[in-house]
């Protein structure tokens, strides 16, 4: 399977571990990642707030680049997935399409509106299939209870994104089961992590993250896992701030989706960039019988 790899900004910068884990897993399950150094940022929802037409145009440019190469786009970030898919939806509105097509023409590009955008979660569960992944598991994550945390833009608005049920999705939990771990169902799994207002009103953002981590914990989760590096920032990098808002410790390891898959498929902690996390993943690794963690 060949796909245009759209890593998004964070996986190329502070969330580099997501890129490492994605490349490891892709190789293992047979996804060829075709790279495009001319992909731009998806706008992360912020450009959509400031100028929605520009936001569609930036993403239509990305989608046009993949279309020209004859490839579907693979994302590893719920927000990138949402923004690119939303651009496809908005591109069908005649007024927006006219302006965006006109702008693209001025940079010598055309876009049909038909580039398919898929998140790694969807590729693993829908195209490769949870059963095929299960057959590749060499280190079953038996005994590890994992709370999936989807990230808003992978799910909603469901009608525009044509995503699975926005309120009761199950693809991530199916995958967690296939890896040998036990999925934990809790309300927060489809909620917001608070990231969009982390730089607007940090204590409120921290309280929202705290709420979801605590919800996962109270339902018995040993760890959380997310297909969105922005959620990962809220849940992992700023977990200390969430703890501060709550007034007590959470100590919740948070995996990026391909890190969890990579663990079950035999990768080392270092290959998956686990030492880069702010909250140690050691407690989770011990549950699955230990994975060598470099000092």
């Amino acid at each position: 399977m060949r796909l245009a790899y759209y890593p998004g900004c964070v996986a190329q910068e502070s969330g580099k571990e997501l890129d490492l884990a994605t490349r490891w897993v892709a190789k293992k399950v047979g996804i060829e990642l075709v790279e495009f150094p001319n992909f731009s940022c998806c706008g992360s929802g912020f450009i959509d707030e400031a100028n929605p037409t520009l936001n569609v145009a930036l993403n239509a440019r990305n989608l046009a680049i993949a279309e020209k190469a004859g490839l579907d786009v693979l994302t590893v970030c719920s927000t990138c997935q949402g923004m690119l898919a939303l651009a496809n939806s908005r591109y069908t509105e005649p007024k927006i399409r006219e302006r965006v097509e006109g702008a693209l023409a001025q940079i010598g590009m055309t876009y049909s509106g038909r580039t398919h955008v898929t998140h790694l979660l969807q590729v693993l569960t829908d195209e490769i299939g949870a059963e095929a992944i299960r057959r590749q598991v060499v280190r079953p994550l038996t005994g590890l209870k994992v709370g999936a945390f989807y990230g808003c833009h992978l799910l909603r608005p469901a009608d525009r994104l044509r995503s699975e049920s926005a309120e009761e999705p199950h693809s991530f939990e199916d995958l967690i089961s296939a890896l040998g771990a036990t999925p934990v169902f809790y309300r927060g799994r489809v909620m917001c992590c608070g990231f969009p207002i982390l730089f607007v009103k940090e204590p409120t953002a921290n309280r929202i993250a705290a709420r979801q981590i605590e919800d996962a914990k109270s339902h018995g989760a040993d760890a959380m896992a997310t297909p969105c590096p922005l959620c990962h920032i809220s849940l992992d990098a700023y977990q200390n701030k969430a703890e501060h808002e709550l007034g007590h410790a959470l100590d919740m390891p948070v995996f990026h989706l391909p890190q969890l898959v990579g663990l079950a498929l035999g990768a080392t902690a270092e290959e998956l960039g686990l030492p880069r996390h702010l909250v140690s993943t050691d407690s989770a690794l011990r549950k699955i019988g230990g994975v060598a963690v470099p000092a």
Binding site: E49, M191, C192, G194, P196, I197, V200, K201, I208
Partner: peptide
């Protein structure tokens, strides 16, 4: 206004 998270839970 700017505390909206664009999570779209209200729309669902």
């Amino acid at each position: 206004l700017w505390l909206c998270l664009r999570c779209h839970l209200c729309t669902e």
